[in-house]
Design a protein around this nucleic acid. Structure first.
Lengths: 143, 143
DNA sequence: GGTGATGCTTGAGTCAATCAAGCATTTCTG
DNA sequence: CAGAAATGCTTGATTGACTCAAGCATCACC
């Protein structure tokens, strides 16, 4: 089930458009992950290990418990997509890296998840800039 | 963990803005559900029972197995938020309805999930219309 | 040099989700 | 009309995500 799967009683046309957009994005992400034999959480974690990362770091970024990351990383490690290395500066910490296979799978995933590319390709450059600005403004985080 | 929790190597400013927007939406939804003692899936299902619905119907809409709906509805039913009634026209089928408590909780949830309202309130009416149109166009589903 | 914080893991438990079976009912078809 | 196929839902088994509570090792500080 994509999250949150559709409109929540949107009251305006703009709200409905936002809901539909988010819904389409989430579903596309899920489909892409699945197509590469990953869960959403796994694709999400794998994607973040472009550079060496710590477990804690990822947990904070994703807003979840560290033990959750332990578990997800263990599954990725079992498939030899990521590796846990020792951190030379702190022996409690782990430096996560992607293996070559992990890099490959991640690239394949991103290629499959063409949602954003498709979305932008439906817009002119001007429109893209406009959309970006409006989304930022809507979030209350002006560029 | 919000899904999909952040950018997937976005290559353009517009793509990054979309990612951030979706991420913020998903997180807000999760927080709101949690605040009312529901999971994302539960809030999502509850929200769709504004009018009587069948199990199959919901499963199709959410793109998941019917047995998944059975399970989620059972939890909502245990909390007396929804009820399963017989369908007079098809005795295999169930007509799901919200109880008064279910209506109330759903309303409270929607009030808490102020994401869309907040987002639109950051925009002028003109900008809202523009955003809606751009999102539709990006999705390739012109209004 | 001990005390407390920090980074990670383990174990127990809940929920979401899928698949395979199975039951009851409806619908189609010969 | 009767038998076969399809449909709507549930159950049971299994996997994964997620949380919390504990615990271990290491670091940081006073």
């Amino acid at each position: 089930m994509a999250v949150p799967s559709g409109p929540v009683s949107p009251s305006t046309e703009a709200e409905r458009a936002m809901f539909d957009f988010v819904d389409a994005y989430d579903r596309a992400y899920e489909v892409a992950a699945d197509r590469h034999g990953m869960t959403v959480a796994q694709a999400c974690v794998l994607g973040r290990i472009a550079r060496p990362r710590g477990m804690r770091e990822l947990a904070d970024e994703l807003g979840c418990d560290a033990s959750n990351i332990t578990q997800i990383v263990s599954r990725l490690e079992a498939r030899e997509l990521v590796e846990r290395h020792a951190d030379p500066h702190d022996r409690r910490s782990r430096r996560l890296t992607r293996t070559a296979a992990g890099d490959e799978l991640n690239a394949a995933f991103e290629k499959t998840f063409e949602f954003a590319r498709a979305a932008t390709s439906n817009l002119t450059l001007d429109e893209q800039a406009q959309l970006a600005e409006l989304l930022r403004k809507a979030l209350g985080r002006p560029a």
